[in-house]
């Protein structure tokens, strides 16, 4: 039905460049999350797709139609806002029906579609209530139902779960995924919460400083970050970065020698905390444990590798005490090599 092509979009606010030449394709029916810290331009990009902001350069194409210059109402999309923006002077029914009413849909059609959207989001019990009488979670459902009722080809969501408490967020996340899969809507979802993005999205676009750092499936982004930023932003604990020197094609940490994928003296090794395992005989990479935090499902060890901060995840049964020096074994194929000067990952040799 509708794919979204964002073609070299630039947005400037005065001299500040909020988006620097961003390109992104969301295929029909795909769920793409824009993930990044606040101020990275993800909301600006979403608002440009919606037509609420005008790009300084570039095009937005939805379903093969260039919508760059169109007003929001002519773009044929629906949006869920961060603060829900549920109209306070209308009942839940009228809120959900709003888009259909604006399309001048016949009354029985409106009723049928509103009831279906309401049933999908479990708000059919209070269609006659006013939003002031609803909880945050219910208002959020109304906002989603309002967006789904128009059966949009494209759905834009701007941190729709960020105002909910943690438990409700988890519950809504699961439901959203089920609802949107059923509807088959092309969705662009803005969030700063990596677990939301990982859990919901088919593909994630990680944004930083007005640029897209990496686009890929959640697993790709987690396992093979394209830049130091992506590795450090995704994952909890974040990826460890160990500065090493490559000499004669190999890098040495303690007694361990790792083959360098490319020549270059300033390299960093990106190591996921769970990709290292404790060696029984203290061989491998030396790791000075400073703090041991039992997290229930695992032990979180904070310490130093070669004098550089690192966090390692071990099974909860591991016998480690603070102050101890242990040895780590790593699988070289699971390491990310990053060029220390550019911050970009180098391809594995």
């Amino acid at each position: 039905m509708a794919d979204i092509v964002i073609d070299h979009v630039v947005k400037e606010f005065g001299s500040f460049q909020a988006l620097q030449d961003v390109s992104l394709v969301a295929n029909d029916g795909e769920f793409v999350a824009l993930l990044g810290p606040s101020g990275c331009g993800k909301t600006t990009l979403l608002r440009i797709i919606a037509g609420l902001e005008t790009q300084s350069a570039g095009r937005v194409v939805i379903g093969g139609r260039d919508v760059s210059g169109l007003t929001p109402r002519k773009r044929g999309l629906a949006m869920v806002f961060q603060n829900y923006a549920v109209f306070p002077h209308m009942t839940v029914f009228e809120n959900v029906a709003f888009g259909l009413r604006m399309q001048k849909a016949p009354a029985d059609d409106v009723k049928r579609k509103v009831e279906r959207a309401a049933a999908l989001l479990h708000i059919d019990g209070f269609l006659e209530r006013y939003p002031a009488k609803l909880s945050g979670g219910q208002r959020q459902r109304v906002a989603v139902a309002r967006a789904l009722a128009v059966e949009p080809a494209v759905l834009l969501m701007d941190e729709p779960l960020s105002n909910l408490d943690a438990l409700l967020r988890l519950e809504m996340r699961t439901e959203l995924k089920a609802v949107l899969r059923e509807a088959g809507t092309t969705t662009i979802y803005v969030t700063h919460d990596q677990t939301e993005a990982m859990g919901l999205a088919d593909r994630i676009a990680v944004m930083y400083g007005g640029k897209i750092e990496q686009i890929g499936s959640p697993l790709e982004i987690y396992a093979t970050p394209a830049t130091r930023f992506v590795g450090g932003f995704i994952g909890s604990p974040p990826m460890n970065f160990i500065k090493v020197r490559c000499e004669n094609g190999s890098a040495r940490i303690g007694e361990m020698a790792l083959p360098c994928p490319v020549a270059g003296s300033e390299m960093e090794i990106g190591l996921r905390g769970e990709d290292a395992s404790l060696a029984a005989d203290r061989s491998g990479i030396p790791f000075d444990v400073r703090v041991v935090e039992p997290m229930g499902s695992h032990l979180l060890l904070t310490g130093a590798i070669d004098g550089q901060l690192a966090r390692i995840v071990t099974p909860p049964t591991a016998k480690v005490t603070a102050g101890e020096r242990v040895g780590l074994h790593v699988d070289p194929s699971r390491l990310t090599w990053i060029d220390g000067r550019t911050g970009r990952a180098v391809s594995r040799g």
């Binding site: 037509g51 929001p72 109402r73 629906a78 806002f81 109209f87 709003f98 888009g99």
Partner: peptide, 23 residues
Amino acid sequence: IPREYEEAAWVFGCTRLQAFVRI
């Protein structure tokens, strides 16, 4: 009156005037 109300109205098919009058 939050700007989002108006923006939501625009997205769901209102012109600026309609959004003002209805919301």
